[in-house]
Design a binder for these strands. Structure first.
Lengths: 235, 235
DNA sequence: TAGATTGTTAATCGATTAACAATC
DNA sequence: TAGATTGTTAATCGATTAACAATC
């Protein structure tokens, strides 16, 4: 059991907790710097990253600092070093096996994100209650009946799971996953799951995202109306 | 043109900008309170909402305050009033017609979110470059060839669009949408789009979300290893 | 009335931004 | 050297949390 976990212990000191905002920006830097690597750039500065992503360069530097990498004044960071540092910090340097539950359109879409494997997430199988789907494959990944999940989870020591089932089914799936010893859940169902405190959850609730967009659009439209009314008065 | 926009101008004073965090929590309250409405509850307090969603009741109150609703001490808020206040504040009270671009698995999944219409977003058509998809329907929504988008967008005065195409195609689609006069873009492609400043963008970048989950899992695993090593020393 | 809850103001906390020294 | 950039410390800003008066 301890041997099974040892590859998580890099011995490195970069285990500090860091703000969610920083964690969400690091993949942007990672992506941009990987593009630089492809065109052969060897170094990159925070100024450059900030300009490319329309972010303050000080913020970029603070974020990058969190990965523990040390740069060189006047030069910047080595491109391969920075890529490695971000990957190591995020835990993307060795992929964790994951199960996906729910092989509908959303589940199928998630199976199609090939880069997930480069980002520490290796989906090795998907599950669905629909017996007709069992045995088929999507994007080269096997779809299995849900009742095989408990046994397989135990045997394969799965620690991370993605829930892509309808809202009404999500809690039941979550319970199954908890029984199987899940440690982290990426939940795409629009419900708040009841889970033990030590299980990490990340909710991808599109209604919450939509709210932000909706309100901003509403404000913009109201402002536009006011502008037009002003013009009518003036004209 | 002005007449076309007038339903956005409610005349109400609830046009204040509010933090993204608040905007993302309001849909949770909305969902919970709608459930209460269904079982016939007439009033609800922040304490109750906070307990149900595992949030601080003061925070719930502050968020709800932003909607402009006035509650009654000792009682709480009227359930229908609160639902209406949240919907009005978010602009969910009258749905905006939207186009979806990209009818792959992800696009199909998004067409299946029936509740979007109750949340101010009415997807009226989807577009795809794949000629074989044109003319078909997914979840009752027509799939049209992408080259029809500019004309239709103009004619239907579409202001909001969802991008669900591969990363490489996203900027091209975005340009097309901007030409068509788009005001808000919900971008599911993992790229940062170059858009005019006055176009509202909301990026649903799963790699950014994954980073947060990955790092938390990594930290939890490291902590577990340390615990086990400690136990071995002790034992 | 007593007590729960809202509304509002103040305190705390943390993230972002600014300033500046160190370095190559 | 001059100047750009990192590393680090301080200032600012805003969100969360706490405190408390008002109210029914």
């Amino acid at each position: 059991m301890a041997a099974d976990l040892k590859n998580f212990d890099t011995g490195a000191p970069e285990g500090r907790a860091v703000s969610e905002a920083t964690l969400r920006r690091l993949p942007l830097y990672h992506r941009f710097v990987k593009e630089l690597a492809q065109i052969g750039n060897l170094v990159v500065s925070c100024t450059q990253i900030g300009a490319a992503l329309d972010l303050d360069s000080t913020q970029v530097r603070k974020d990058i600092e969190a990965t523990g990498i040390v740069g060189r004044p006047r030069v910047g960071y080595g491109v391969p070093d920075l890529i490695a540092a971000i990957e190591r910090f995020l835990g993307w340097d060795n992929a964790t096996d994951a199960f996906l539950v729910g092989a509908g359109h959303l589940g199928a879409a998630l199976l199609g994100y090939r880069r997930f494997e480069e980002c520490g997430l290796k989906i090795i199988a998907a599950f669905d209650t629909d017996a007709r789907k069992a045995g088929t494959e999507i994007h080269g990944k096997k779809i299995l009946p849900l009742d095989k999940l408990p046994d397989l989870m135990e045997r394969m020591k799965i620690r991370i799971a993605i829930i892509a089932v309808p809202a009404a089914a999500a809690q039941g799936v979550a319970d199954l996953l908890v029984d199987g010893g899940v440690r982290a859940v990426w939940n795409f169902a629009p419900v708040r799951l009841a889970l033990p405190q030590d299980v990490i959850v990340h909710n991808e609730d599109l209604y919450c995202s939509l709210a932000a967009l909706s309100q901003k659009l509403k404000l913009a439209m109201q402002a536009e109306v006011r502008r037009q009314q002003q013009q009518q008065q003036d004209g």
